[in-house]
């Protein structure tokens, strides 16, 4: 059913807007970093999906929480079970829009600095965020790159006082996704 909607959306979408182009990947790389003097923790997800609408500047990202890989098994276990409750909240999503968007010319290679704002949903809680990012056009491929900070407490994730020195209150999130045009 979902797929039918997606197919319909694409078909009708393209009728409507003429050559409205969407860019997309299923293998976007999203990572996050919690750095404290005591411990550095990083999680990496290499199967995040991203859709970018070239005509409107709308962007959507989605990641599976259980898809984040850590150096140490124990970190991954705590991340999933204690903090993110990934069985209850399996996905993190971002839906946003490039501010003051002018359609990107994909025929010219180059870098474009953008400001993106939208809703980030983690652990079942949605917050407005905005961040700066870079879109790189490279031979009709688009790379989206952004770094932003997330306050752990904003998303209802509580850190026990016993480990409060090991886990940063503000976590840096890095997004790096190369998108191909949907034909």
């Amino acid at each position: 059913m979902n797929q039918l909607i997606i197919i319909l959306a694409f078909t009708f979408g393209s009728f409507h807007a003429g050559n409205a182009q969407k860019y997309f990947t299923k293998t976007g790389y999203i990572s996050f970093y919690s750095d404290t003097p005591i411990e550095k923790i990083a999680g990496h997800n290499k199967s995040s999906s991203c859709v970018f609408d070239l005509s409107s500047g709308k962007l959507e990202f989605a990641s599976l929480i259980k898809g984040f890989q850590f150096e140490k098994a124990l970190m991954q276990e705590h991340f999933n079970e204690n903090y993110m409750e990934s069985t209850k909240f399996p996905k993190a999503t971002f839906k946003g829009q490039i501010e003051n968007y002018k359609p990107i010319d994909v025929t010219h290679n180059g870098k474009i600095n953008v400001k993106v704002s939208g809703q980030l949903t983690i652990h079942g809680i949605t917050k407005n965020i905005s961040t700066e990012g870079v879109i790189t056009v490279n031979n009709s491929k688009l790379n989206t790159y952004a770094e932003f900070n997330v306050l752990v407490a904003d998303y209802g994730i509580s850190i026990p006082s016993l480990v409060k020195d090991q886990i940063a209150k503000t976590v840096k999130v890095k997004v790096d996704a190369s998108l191909d045009v949907i034909k």
């Binding site: 299923k26 199967s47 999906s49 990641s63 599976l64 259980k66 898809g67 399996p90 996905k91």
Partner: peptide, 14 residues
């Protein structure tokens, strides 16, 4: 692989 869920695809990790 370990199943981590579905976005547009079902994903298996490790």
């Amino acid at each position: 692989g370990f199943c981590s869920g579905k976005l547009m695809d079902v994903i298996l990790v490790r």
